[in-house]
Design a protein around this nucleic acid. Structure first.
Lengths: 183, 183
DNA sequence: AAAGACATGTAAAACGTTACATGATTGC
DNA sequence: GCAATCATGTAACGTTTTACATGTCTTT
């Protein structure tokens, strides 16, 4: 495993649950993990092609009809499963945050305090919306924790909720501090 | 501002506080904001060259001696200050999380629960170390909040502490849940 | 004298996003 | 019939990391 293309692991992970098309994969990323990972068509389709060549995934032709333009389903191969497992067992991880909101705040002294307050409030309202979505997931998932995979989905949702609630509490404190010290 | 190179804003922000060399800038990024933003020499030096051409920064020759190889200090120009201000006033931000730890956990069902526990514990110990560093910053900064800029530094440190504490509390819950449901 | 930090820079490679091109199918 | 969504793919572009190359200065 010379390369490091994480999108490959996302795709293998999705395919380990069920056969999917590139389009499906994109939707699953958007719906299920977008609060900590993203992927675009421009990365998914080329990655599928490359991984097919490497034998990590294979095309699956459904029973159905030919002739018309068909959806291309992929499934994970044994080699793909092994690659996924190897990655899961690796200790090395890359956890990257790029928070432009916080970056702006760090340099807030250059502008008026109002500018920073505005930056925080924008963040606050975005996070509030996302948190509501995650709470919805939490409710659904907590009812079906008996399925083993669901425990893991649930954990990642909890991660999102925990961090988002932390963000919101920080927003409040940060605004208060700016107001108290600078306005 | 057609382009979108955020490293430019990091550099302008650093230079808005004081004249610095490329090397200084790198150290300041590593020391002060690395928990939410990163930058490498390979991006800093070319960005400085480009921004000098655009008139956003200029070289500053210190009084000192010539002859020997000299450090290259940069300072921010008025145009650079305006660019920084414009960016601070923009509402659009990109906040990106790429948490491989959480990604692995999402696909945890593929492997044994022990593998996921291990992933969480690795994360836990890394975060514990980083949190200690941030707590150190917090202590130092809280004593000098009368300097306006320090309030902003303090806020970003609080952001780190809040999120890291959230992570640690999540780690505990996540491990307990895996143990209860799957082991 | 050697090690390690200081200091600047370039080149290659990887990677990912955006925009574009194309067309089928489904629901109103 | 039209709009939206489904569906696959390519190409250009820009950014960033990594590794390399080079040399100085400070401390032990």
């Amino acid at each position: 495993m010379a390369k490091d293309r994480k999108i490959d692991m996302v795709i293998l992970g999705v395919l380990s649950h069920e056969r999917s098309t590139g389009y499906d994969i994109k939707k699953k990323i958007d719906g299920g993990i977008s609060y900590f990972w993203k992927g675009s068509f421009g990365s998914i389709y080329p990655a599928l092609t490359a991984m097919e060549k490497e034998g990590l995934v294979s095309r699956y032709a459904p029973e159905g009809q030919s002739g018309k333009r068909e959806k291309i389903y992929y499934e994970i191969t044994d080699a793909g499963k092994q690659t996924l497992l190897d990655w899961l067992n690796e200790d090395k991880v890359t956890n990257d945050l790029k928070y432009e909101t916080v970056l702006k705040l760090f340099f807030g002294g250059v502008a008026n305090p109002e500018v920073s307050i505005k930056t925080i409030e924008n963040f606050e309202s975005e996070i509030t919306n996302s948190l509501a979505v995650l709470k919805g997931y939490e409710e659904v998932l907590s009812a079906v924790l008996d399925e083993p995979d669901h425990v893991y989905y649930y954990l990642t949702v909890l991660f999102g909720i925990e961090t988002y609630e932390g963000y919101l509490s920080w927003c409040k404190n940060a605004k208060a501090l700016i107001r108290k010290q600078l306005m």
